[in-house]
Every structure is written in structure tokens, then in C-alpha cells.
Write a protein that binds this DNA or RNA. Structure first.
Lengths: 168, 168
DNA sequence: GCAAATTATTTTAAGCATAAAATATTTCGA
DNA sequence: TCGAAATATTTTATGCTTAAAATAATTTGC
């Protein structure tokens, strides 16, 4: 087995390096949180003002938009990274409001299939268009040639964190 | 007034470039959200399990830790980027639990000063230490030499979004 | 075949978050 | 000085979020 050149064991770092890395990690987390909070707050505000809608509701529709034949209800918490109990009232209301349907499976009576309605799909497309343009507006001044680089680094960050969560 | 060389008007981009940038912006937002959600969820879980504490409570203490003479209550919502009404019950409980004090100002009876107690400071230091090591654990495999680059890009992203929010 | 484990979903309790309205106090301007 | 605008904070209504417990249906192992 080759020695891991690019990530030496912690013990090989001296105290100053350790401290610097530690501080940088905290700063990274605070920046990440600040960016997300800023963008999320503005998107939420616009969803409410323009469409009287919330982001979690939009997120559910976004998942269903790509699944013409619907999704098993239990898939939603996994894909959206939220708890199952959380989705119950959100799905309830989307059904009430006519955006989606919820049909019990005939094969397994525990399971339900959720599926977007025609009107739901129309409403989603309209909102998705606005969502995209709001984002474009917010990020307009971020250099286009840096977008993919940043996405790549965030991909790496994400997989690093995921690995760390799965390991122990 | 000089023409803005570095950010040409949208119309100067052809359709394909526009589309690509649009998709990249959406991807960036989804990555940002995924990273934040992953890390935040794990930190929240650990705060609850190890200290029976929440992140919003920790965030309040973190602000007060750097202010030995306390803070005007109204400063907290600004610094933490949350609504004022949100903080009322959080501060209430921190006072009840003895982590902080809330004293009406003698000069202006509308104003209150919040200040960490000695025990609050002790508890905060202990939790902050764990918080740092949890973060270090989650980010351990992210290359140390890329940390500052990513922080820099997020700083730029943040200021770009902030500017966009202040302008219109 | 049937009890026990597993799986899908909902319910409950507690806390966070916002917006909008309400309350209380201070400041400002004619 | 006195009424109106501004400021600091809380309250209210609504919705998201989680963890843990409850319910219901299916599968598994003997």
C-alpha cells in the first residue's frame, strides 16, 4: 500500500499548521452557512411574495417533475434529505391543493405512490422558471468562468463529508 | 461613467452560453445547499446528543462570547441574520437556564443588554471546543491546501449576493 | 402457519423561523 | 409642548424540522 502523500497523518503536522487548518475549517463552515442563508432567505421571500408558496413544497414538486409515473412516498425523504414525518403534512397540503395525488399501492398496502397532477406540473414549470431567473439575478455578478471550479470544489467537499458520515 | 468592461450586458452572450451559465448557477446552488444541509444536520445531531443543546442557542452564546460587556439585544438579530421575533423565546430560555442575563438599559427603557454569565461562558467554551473538533472530523479529508481557495471563492460569492440584495 | 422482525407511514412534542401586528418608549418637528 | 414618526421588543399565526413513539402491513424464520 502506498503512503498517502497528499494527506499525511495528523501527527505529522506541527502545532501551527494544525491551528491554521482548524481556523480555516471553521471559517469555511461559516462562509458556507452565510452564503446558503443569504440565498435561501431571498428565494423563500420571493416564493412567498410571488406565488404564496414555500421552498419545501417546491422541492417536493421538483422531485416529482422528473418522475412522470410518480414516486413511492418513501423515496421523497431520502431524496430531499429530510425526515419522513416532516413530509406528511407537506404532502397532505399539496394533495389538498391539487398539485399532486397520493394513491395507495395495490401490491403493498403500506406503500403510497405520489404523482404530480397536470395542474401541478403547470404550476411547477411556472415557478421553476422564476426560481431560475431569481438565482441568475442573485449570481449575475459572480464570474461565469469560476462557476464550474466552485461547483467542483463543493462536489469534493460534499463527498468528503458524506464519507466521513458513513465511515464511523 | 465608464462602461462596465468586466460584466457585459446579458444580451452579449449567445443562447448556448446563457443556457450553460444558467444550469451552472442552479447546480452551484444545489451543491451549496447540499453541503450546508449535510454539515448542519450532523452538527445539530451532535449538539443535541452531547450537550442537549441547539445550534441557534450556541450561535447566541458565540456572539456574546466576544463581547465581555454584553450586547444590546437588538444587535443579535442583525449579526445572526434572523428575525427579532425569533430570538425572543431563545433568549428567554437562555436566561432561564442561567447562561445569559438580560438587563433593561437605564438610559432607554426600550433597550435591553444581554450578557453571558460566568457559567454560560464556561459551558460555551466547552461546547465550542467540541464544535471545532466535530468540524475538523467532518472536513478532515478535504485537502488543507484547498481550504483557503474555497473560502476566498465563497467570500466572493457572498459579497456578490449581498450586493445584488442591496441594489434594487 | 404463525410469532417476531422489518418496513412504510403518521402522530406527537418541542423548538426554530418568518411576517405582520401590537406594545411601549423615545425622538423629532412644527 | 404635543402629536407624529421612529425605534426596540414581544406577540401571534403559520409552517418547517426533528426525534421518538405509535400504527399498520408485510416478510421472515422456524
Amino acid at each position: 500500500m502506498a503512503l498517502a502523500k497528499e494527506s499525511p497523518p495528523v501527527s505529522s503536522k506541527n502545532g501551527a499548521d494544525q491551528e491554521a487548518e482548524y481556523r480555516a475549517q471553521t471559517r469555511l463552515w461559516l462562509r458556507l452557512l452565510a452564503c446558503t442563508t443569504l440565498i435561501e432567505g431571498e428565494l423563500r421571500r420571493r416564493f412567498r411574495e410571488e406565488f404564496d408558496f414555500t421552498m419545501p413544497r417546491f422541492d417536493v414538486l421538483a422531485q416529482l417533475d422528473r418522475e412522470p409515473s410518480g414516486l413511492v412516498l418513501g423515496e421523497l425523504p431520502k431524496r430531499l434529505m429530510v425526515s419522513a414525518g416532516n413530509l406528511t403534512p407537506i404532502v397532505d397540503r399539496l394533495v389538498e391543493d391539487g398539485y399532486i395525488t397520493r394513491t395507495p399501492s395495490t401490491l403493498d398496502r403500506r406503500v403510497q405512490i405520489v404523482c404530480m397532477t397536470v395542474e401541478g406540473r403547470k404550476a411547477f414549470r411556472r415557478m421553476a422558471k422564476s426560481h431560475g431567473s431569481w438565482l441568475a439575478e442573485l449570481l449575475a455578478e459572480f464570474p461565469a468562468d469560476k462557476l464550474n471550479g466552485l461547483i467542483g470544489e463543493l462536489d469534493e467537499l460534499k463527498s468528503v463529508v458524506k464519507d466521513s458520515l458513513e465511515k464511523p
